[in-house]
């Protein structure tokens, strides 16, 4: 039988030892899929390999898993974010940051920017301040001119009084 000849050829042993060429691997996979006897013989050889390894096993030092775990821990993702913090309010601005207590969740780029976002209410505050500023400026100019006019009139009156006294 062809499958028995194949098993006896030693190709399976070469495969489990990782010494088979690509062509031999392809052939083995075909034979394994086609003939259950080949598959069974291969499984037996794998068990044999495992048995040799068990015989030669060395208990790893306790620290070994710790070292492996350390490298894995570096890849652990941060706690799950709340998607609501990425939503804007009804005016489509002011991102809310729901998880502020859990530490920074963004890359800090704001300090590099020349612009800032503020609430729309401030627009009216600035307008009111501007208008009030203009009104006060108008009053200041008015009273300054009034004061200057008054000073001139006083000076004129003082001059008239001096002339009358003479």
């Amino acid at each position: 039988m062809i499958q028995q000849q194949y098993i006896d050829s030693g190709a399976l042993e070469a495969y489990v030892m990782g010494s088979a060429s690509d062509q031999e691997v392809k052939e083995l996979l075909y034979m394994k899929a086609t003939y259950p006897e080949v598959n069974f013989a291969l499984q037996q050889l794998e068990v044999d390999m495992e048995h040799i390894a068990q015989q030669m096993a060395v208990i790893p030092p306790v620290r070994t898993w710790g070292k492996i775990s350390e490298t894995i821990d570096e890849l652990i993702v941060r706690p799950v974010d709340n998607p609501e913090q990425y939503q804007t309010d009804k005016d489509d601005h002011n991102f809310t940051t729901g998880n502020q207590n859990n530490g920074p969740h963004y890359i800090e780029v704001e300090s590099e920017s020349n612009t800032m976002k503020i609430n729309k209410v401030w627009k009216w505050v600035f307008a009111a301040v501007f208008v009030l500023g203009k009104i006060f400026l108008g009053f200041a100019i008015y009273f300054y001119l009034e004061n200057r006019q008054a000073q001139l009139q006083i000076n004129d009156l003082k001059t008239e009084l001096r002339q009358l006294k003479k």
Partner: peptide
């Protein structure tokens, strides 16, 4: 399998 691999 750590022990078996380490032995190998």
């Amino acid at each position: 399998f750590g022990g078996m691999l380490l032995g190998y």
